[in-house]
Design a protein around this nucleic acid. Structure first.
Lengths: 225, 225
DNA sequence: AACAAATCATGATTAATATCATATTTTAAT
DNA sequence: ATTAAAATATGATATTAATCATGATTTGTT
């Protein structure tokens, strides 16, 4: 099993602020896990015993609405941490995590993380910054949900995925999502998401290669009202 | 000017985790301010030089949407801190803060807060918890915005205000908001907010005393679909 | 290869909400 | 007190998106 001290993934999250010693200790008690596409990493309402460091793959964080529909609140990709919020507030998770493709994660026990948070101010400040950034993003999502049309939100989601999660060699979005997932990000009916994507395709804003989506006219998407 | 060490307000926020010494130091460099109803505390895009501790009054945090409408993202009341997020991420504020009534706040310079965050792990863990809680609330708002009707969102906003900000002696909501503010919380047109509130009144779910709103049938509001 | 199940697609209809228009009432200013 | 401006209210209409219905296509399974 590879060692945290040498793992390059941590460069992308707050674990980079841990000392060598702390990393060695974490490495000793962490467990690596492979998670299959579609598998649940943790459930909404579940008490987490630690955080996950995503070494590879992507997952979605969803919340079940009272009307029975799932809403995707955030996507977490390689390099990011999963579950800090619940660990910090010492509450059951408010979100469910589901793998969108095959994943590789390291699980770090809660006690270890909490100890480091209380001992290493640099680490805790880094986690604080992460959370501040998540909060800012959440504010943006709230405003978009409240004020923009489904067309706009879907266009912006495509742009967001393009800019934040990158593209494959052929230019298609690296993340493969079902139409239902898109609907669940945007907060609309699946049929509506399908309709809007079809329209984008007709208008030459996007194209599809198999199930993959490619943005053909980024500026056009940005101009959607 | 009153001293932070003796101020009871801090019991309600993370400043309570500061040591006596730290509080004395903060007390020495803080400034008290009175803010009139409607006054802007800070603008979206403004660099904050510190955080505000709200001693009295209520303010709204809004974000301007691209379509020119303001969205209320959060309300901050007596006892809470204002501006931590921006200070921590060292970015311009993503939100504008406007007083909803006359306020009294203490301004604590950024350098002081940052120093304490880096020195006092208990304080920084407390701020972390605050932020985690804000993030959880933001997730809930996202899901509500995405999945619920205007009627539901407005009903829930009334309940939220009732439960979190309390009522006056006559049972009316302690916070006085314009119909435009309600629209801006729910993310709808002002006319729509007015219409829904009128309907709630006709249905006996709420009543109004002057401009104040009183919840008459809490369970009825909760049952709104 | 054959089949079932899931996903994607599109049309028709309905429901929710935005927008525009216009009163009425309340608040603020002179 | 009078007037202007802002906030509240309500109707009519237009737009957006949800829902219901039905097929086509893709994917996974035996």
């Amino acid at each position: 099993m590879s060692k945290c001290e040498q793992c390059i993934i941590k460069q992308f999250n707050s674990l980079k602020s841990l000392t060598k010693d702390e990393l060695v200790r974490i490495s000793a008690c962490k467990t690596s896990k492979k998670i299959k596409k579609g598998e649940v990493i943790f459930e909404e309402g579940e008490m987490l015993n630690g955080v996950y460091c995503v070494r590879d793959g992507i997952c979605k964080l969803t919340k079940l609405s009272e009307n029975g529909k799932d809403q995707i609140v955030k996507m977490v990709v390689k390099g990011q941490l999963l579950g800090q919020r619940s660990i910090i507030s010492d509450e059951a998770s408010n979100l469910q995590a589901i793998a969108l493709n095959d994943m590789e994660v390291c699980f770090i026990p809660k006690s270890e993380i909490i100890a480091d948070l209380q001992k290493n101010p640099k680490f805790s400040f880094d986690v604080l910054k992460d959370m501040a950034s998540d909060l800012r993003e959440a504010d943006d999502v709230i405003v978009n949900m409240a004020q923009k049309s489904v067309r706009q939100r879907l266009a912006e989601s495509l742009i967001y995925i393009h800019e934040n999660f990158g593209v494959n060699p052929d230019g298609t979005l690296s993340i493969l999502l079902s139409r239902e997932d898109y609907a669940s990000i945007v907060g609309t009916a699946t049929e509506s998401a399908i309709r809007v994507l079809s329209q984008f395709k007709k208008d030459g804003l996007i194209s599809t290669i198999g199930k993959f989506i490619k943005i053909e006219d980024l500026n056009g998407l940005k101009r959607i009202e």
